[in-house]
Nucleic acid binder design. Structure first.
Lengths: 331, 331
DNA sequence: TCCTCCGAATGAAACGTTTCATCACGGTTG
DNA sequence: CAACCGTGATGAAACGTTTCATTCGGAGGA
């Protein structure tokens, strides 16, 4: 069922059908109705391959995230999708699962489909495949990353500020012995948040090295937060508060506290990071540092579309958002 | 940069380049290397619109889920994706967010792209758009649903069996006053699980109407589970165990128990449904009914590809899996 | 009555592949 | 030595749109 069949059925030319599809205001109302009727009768569905081939440009964007199970990326994706559909673009959602080869495969497919632009949180700092894509002219925006060479737009959140926010809050509540329960400090996020925490402690006139106990878990998972906290409790560490590099770790610590009969926040205060949806519904609702996730997605998508629509006047931007503190019962 | 440029550069014909791309074994090794070199030098990327247009068929599948934030669908998607990439298909992941118009929009885009087949959990029982798609020849598989008219494949889980599993377990542990905390009973899942629960109670020689208290929350959310449980506690209901229609509700009930000083499972036993990743890491690790989610996805994808590859010999199947009980500390 | 003009419809070219019939060229066979 | 064969390469047609220059038909003005 092609445009040709529709044309025949409606008794008009192929060009007219195309016009009905793409510029309905250009065709006389009577003709238009005939054509629409024919389309409905035949159940015609436009072949977007043909359209795209001829037009040379598609109306879709690609988004490659590290982990679809992560609420952070779900919200980012929602923001991107909002803007995309708003502007009449389709979004191709891809999950690299932190694997470089999956990322490359997705980039390949997206480029073969000639997407208009790509939003990506790359698995590693520099990706040859990604550079190639950009060089060949597909606009690219980095999400939750910054490009040291500033040759594309990026949108990220200031993790140092987040750590500082956390530290200031805990100090203000009078806590002095603070545990920082984190994932691998090799992750920039984890390291930055510690930097911010130390900065806040120092700003209060205290010695970060004395106040802060760092516990590095091998990953940002609840079970590891549980184990870390149990270890801490068992060796009798004096801890008034725990700041966790993400909410999952914090929920693990919470479980450890509950299972050893400690009261939150009286015996130990708890502060998470990310403000995942479940933080508010934990056994003790969790205070957390919130990142403007949906807004990140929206902003990234807008930057991308801006570059797509005005490639010549466009100037790359590195946007950096500040996180917020969400107060609940755990602190 | 088209195949033509590559041909020119390599000093061969267009057809030969196409052969290198699609049937490399058919072209002499020397020529092949020349062509590959030209491709690399020019940074050629195949235009899949053109390929698809000419070939008439694409190598991609569509998956439309109700809610990407739901761990159930994340796992299903993972299963589908496994099989798809394994067979060299690309997967277009779409989220209807339980909105009919979004579902229709996605179906439209997928059909315009001429995907080979569609896996979908429809928002409502009968979708005209979906029927049209099927009629026009795109194979379709229902996920977590059954088609009453049996004109396509489907993969689902037996929710009655799940409820029965839960009921039998609670009865065996000696619990007699059981609360069933559920979402809207208009949802088939919620209703089926209740049916199963009642069946188990009856099978134990008890009266379901006397033993079971049903509390219907307006949605399957943790906060509503919390509120439901608080209400229950406040009116002093005698409850030994709560079976929840999903883990989120159960986690809400857990929070209510913790915040009112009740001990789980001593004062009240708690059983969830879905076995989401976080169930194991809750303040009290949650017993739950597990659905074989990844397996559902894999099976659905396999059925779909089977239908795509052998449309004439293919016979539609309605696959129904049984759920498992996962024992943890909450019961 | 003739010209001009304008809106609406037409027809053909082009987009980048794949496919298939055809061809060129050595080597083998009778 | 002619006929045949097989391996590789070629060239052109076709896929279903969009686009744009062209044509058509009638209304309005001179």
């Amino acid at each position: 069922m092609s445009i040709k069949d529709v044309a025949e059925r409606a008794g008009v030319s192929i060009g007219t059908v195309s016009n009905v599809l793409n510029r309905p205001e250009k065709v006389a109302v009577g003709t238009r109705e005939q054509v629409l009727a024919a389309i409905a009768e035949l159940g015609f569905v436009r072949n977007s391959s043909a359209a795209q081939l001829r037009a040379g440009t598609s109306r879709s964007l690609g988004l490659i995230v590290l982990d679809m199970a992560n609420p952070f990326f779900q919200d980012v994706a929602k923001g991107v999708e909002d803007v995309a559909t708003e502007q009449g673009y389709a979004l191709m959602l891809c999950n690299s699962d932190e694997q470089g080869d999956r990322e490359n495969r997705h980039l390949q497919v997206l480029e073969e489909q000639r997407v208009r632009g790509v939003l990506i949180t790359p698995v590693s700092v520099s990706s040859e495949r990604l550079d190639a894509l950009r060089t060949r002219g597909t606009p690219t925006v980095l999400v939750d990353r910054h490009d040291p060479r500033v040759d594309c737009c990026s949108v990220a959140v200031d993790d140092v500020a987040g750590g500082e926010l956390a530290g200031t809050h805990l100090i203000e509540r009078g806590h002095r012995d603070i545990a920082y329960v984190t994932g691998p400090l090799g992750l920039r996020q984890c390291a930055d948040r510690l930097t911010g925490l130390r900065r806040a402690v120092a700003a209060a006139g205290e010695d970060p090295d004395r106040l802060i106990t760092v516990i590095e878990a091998p990953a940002l998972k609840a079970r590891l937060g549980y184990e870390a906290a149990i270890g801490l409790f068992e060796r009798g560490a004096r801890i008034e508060a725990a700041f966790c590099a993400n909410d999952l770790l914090a929920l693990g610590v919470l479980r450890a506290a509950v299972s050893t009969g400690r009261r939150v926040p009286d015996d130990i205060a708890l502060l998470g990071y990310d403000d995942i949806e479940f933080a508010a519904d934990a056994a003790v609702p969790l205070s957390s540092i919130r990142q403007p996730t949906v807004h990140i997605g929206r902003t990234a998508a807008r930057l991308l579309l801006e570059e797509c629509d005005h490639p010549d006047t466009h100037a790359h931007q590195q946007v950096m958002f500040k996180p917020d503190l969400v107060l609940r019962e755990s602190t």
